[in-house]
Amino acid sequence: MTQVTFSDKIKRSWAITVKDMKIYYLRPPALMFGILFPVALFFTFTVGRNLSPDRLIPVLSAQTVFWSASTIGPVAIPMERRLRTFERFLSAPISLISVLWGKMMAGFIFGAGITTIATVIGILWGNQTVSDPVALVLGIGLSSMVYSAMGILFASIPTGSPGEVIVPLNFVRIPLMFVSGMFIPVESMPAAGQIVAALSPLTHTIGLLNLGTGSPSVFGFAANIGALLVWLLVFLYVGQLFHKIIMRRE
């Protein structure tokens, strides 16, 4: 019997990613919550506030990466449960973690891709200088991984309807926007608010994007990266744990 190597696992995960990209990127819920919703929210909260480009671009990019990356998992997995195509992965010679990794990569590419386009448009339109490209790239890339993993975690809800995953996910996503320094700067928040902000992954996304466009990050580069990495591990671990629990029940 041929041993399944790490490289084999990556290839099989990638096959899932490519398949998800083909099938789910243009699905109405993905377009609605991945593109339209963040753009609409951005305009809702910024039009008429006369904010400078260095303040606007991090908000635009953070909104986009936050919503788009966390949408693909909650669209794809419930649909696959309904059509029972998710069972194909469970009966295939591939571990659950490899399946979830493949799905997470589909969300990551969707989120990172759309956010990159939005950010480039924002930078060109605002004639903004990128002062820290590493922070900007990590702000988009790492955040995209984190929010994609968050979407996969919520997609463990055993349902065949994407709406039944997206609604509870929105109960988390919408409040997070208001405690993460997106509309109210963290420095202006009361002490309790600042503690909550420090715990929110979105605060650290904005921190990195701020650094990228020349504004300061409240918690600093290292803390932003560290917090996002911790959240990534938490979402991945809890996500696969929940999926395993659901599998045992089914």
Partner: peptide, 15 residues
């Protein structure tokens, strides 16, 4: 997906 893509995807999944 097409019939061809379905088979090819399954082949990839099984290595």
């Amino acid at each position: 997906l097409s019939a061809w893509e379905n088979l090819i995807f399954t082949g990839k999944l099984y290595g």
